[in-house]
Design a protein around this nucleic acid. Structure first.
Lengths: 102, 102
DNA sequence: TAAGTATATGAACATATGCTCATATAAAAT
DNA sequence: ATTTTATATGAGCATATGTTCATATACTTA
C-alpha cells in the first residue's frame, strides 16, 4: 500500500468542504437555515421563533452572509432574509430527514 | 406570520444533525474519512498519507470511533480502520463532488 | 525475558467559536 | 427634530477544539 494507491483531494477542496460543514455544525445556524428553507424571514421573526437575543441571531446571520449561504432584502427598517445556497439546503434537509427516519 | 406557521425540529434532531456536521467540519477528519471511503487503512498508513503525527491521527480516530463513524479490526499490532456510517460517507462525497464540479 | 513496534491516551496549550453587553446606524413615526 | 423601531457590530468572556508532548498499553520479535 503506497501513497499513490488512491485519489487525492486538493487542500482547497478539503478546506471548502470543511467550511461548508462548519456552517452547518452549529444548532443555531441549523435552525436558522431550516427556517429560511421554509420561508423568507425577518430578523425579528427569527429571533422570536428561536427565542434568542437579537444580537446572537444577527451575529449568526452575519456569518451566514459572509459564507454566502443567505441573502436579504430591505423593506424600510425590516430586513428579510432568505437562503442563497440551494445545495447547502439540500444537504441539510437530507441529514435532517435521515435523522428523523431512524 | 406567527410561530406556528411552519414545521419545527425537535432539539434532539437539531443536536444530532449538529454532531454529524461537526464530525465533518474538520479538514483532518474529512481526509481520514475520505481515505477510509476508498480503502481500509492502518493508523500508520493514515499517518503517512496525511503527513501528521501518530498522536494527532489517533486522537481524531478516537473521536470518530466515539461518533460511531469508523470501526476497526486488529491484526497483531496493527489496527485496520474502516468507515462505519454509510450515510455520512454519502454526504461527504456529495459535498466533495459538488465542490470539485464548480 | 528484554527490546521493538503499533497504537492509545492524558495533560497542557493555543486558537476558534458563540454568546452577552453596550453601542452604532438608519429608516419610520411622532 | 426627536423618539422609536429594526438591525448591525465591536469588545469581552467562557467554552470547545485540535494539536503536541510525554507516557501507557499490548502485541511481536530477538
Amino acid at each position: 500500500m503506497n501513497q499513490n494507491a488512491h485519489s487525492f483531494l486538493s487542500a482547497d477542496t478539503v478546506d471548502e468542504a470543511s467550511r461548508t460543514f462548519k456552517a452547518l455544525a452549529d444548532p443555531t445556524r441549523i435552525k436558522i437555515l431550516y427556517l429560511l428553507s421554509q420561508e423568507e424571514c425577518s430578523v425579528n421573526h427569527i429571533t422570536e421563533v428561536l427565542e434568542m437575543t437579537q444580537s446572537a441571531v444577527s451575529h449568526q446571520l452575519s456569518m451566514l452572509r459572509n459564507l454566502r449561504l443567505v441573502k436579504y432584502r430591505r423593506e424600510g427598517n425590516t430586513f428579510y432574509y432568505s437562503y442563497a445556497d440551494e445545495h447547502v439546503i439540500t444537504i441539510l434537509n437530507q441529514v435532517l430527514t435521515h435523522i428523523e427516519c431512524k
